[in-house]
Amino acid sequence: MLRFLIKRLLLAATTLVAISIVTFLLFFAVPSSPAWTQCGRNCSPERIAQVEQSLGLDQPITKQYTDFVKGVFVGRTIDDAGTIRECTAPCLGYSFRSKEPVTDTIERSLPVTISIVAGAMVVFLTVGIGLGMLAALKKGTVFDRVAIGASVGFASTQTYTLGGVLLLLLVYSTGILPNPHYTPLTENPLDWAGGMLLPWITLGLINSALYARLSRAQMIETLQEDFVRTARAKGLSPRVVNRRHALRAAITPIITIAGVDLGAYLGGVVITESVFSLNGIGREAAQAVSDLNLPLVMATVLLAAFFIVAMNIIVDMLYAVIDPRVRLG
């Protein structure tokens, strides 16, 4: 177990370093400069050079990269056209655009994304897995057909379509729900939930559809397993057979997928955040890319990569706990 963990952590660190290097290189491969976006259309070459110098972009790439890495681990001093800024570790630099420390941007936007994802997951795990399992048990019935028909419908809907329609119906036309907004959970839990309800429903329903079909297929397969037949042959009631024997085995691969999905979503749910104008990490990332805002791009890319890598390790460890046949090593 320990060996496995050390191996995976080393691999994770390597992955993150590789991603940071590739992101850096890609950024400089773009035939444009952040200075352009900073000083506008009619900018003199002198002015461009000046801006680039103030952002530290005149330095060699290797120097810029080592400065960035140094900042993350020990902090660094940034000279912004005469203004000296102390940036303590973990320093991710200052936003080219707003001049605020990138760590502040992350601290502000990450809770928004976490709030959206956590609630949506509760929705799609309960609704999706619940419907899927029920449909599998009632395979071929009207319930099964309606549930699976609906999930095909929802699965082929996009967040911006469903989100927009729900916004129109539930907020603008009827006012049943408040306009989506973010209030910290610690400040006002009720307002937090109220503001998040629509994104939860939207992201939750679309994913429920996928999870419903996945769980149904998984459960139908498990119900045909020999060990389920054994459980019935023992004289157990259908309830016990389904719950203790079939469900337990069917749900394992779904947990894996949910874990990996969680990792991917925590890096930012760009479209959901944009549709509901919530300033989560995904929206910041998208904005940073269009602004060529290197420090923020680096931070959001690395954060997304970190979540994915971390969730993969957690899922693998969880799998070993759930399935006794799995040995980590």
């Binding site: 020999d226 060990f227 023992k234 085995a249 759930i322």
Partner: peptide, 19 residues
């Protein structure tokens, strides 16, 4: 089932619950 009539299945690896 299991009390008056019991069954021994062909492949015990798949017939026993893995978990």
């Amino acid at each position: 089932r299991g009390k008056d009539v019991a069954m021994i299945f062909q492949d015990p690896l798949s017939a026993l619950h893995p978990y």
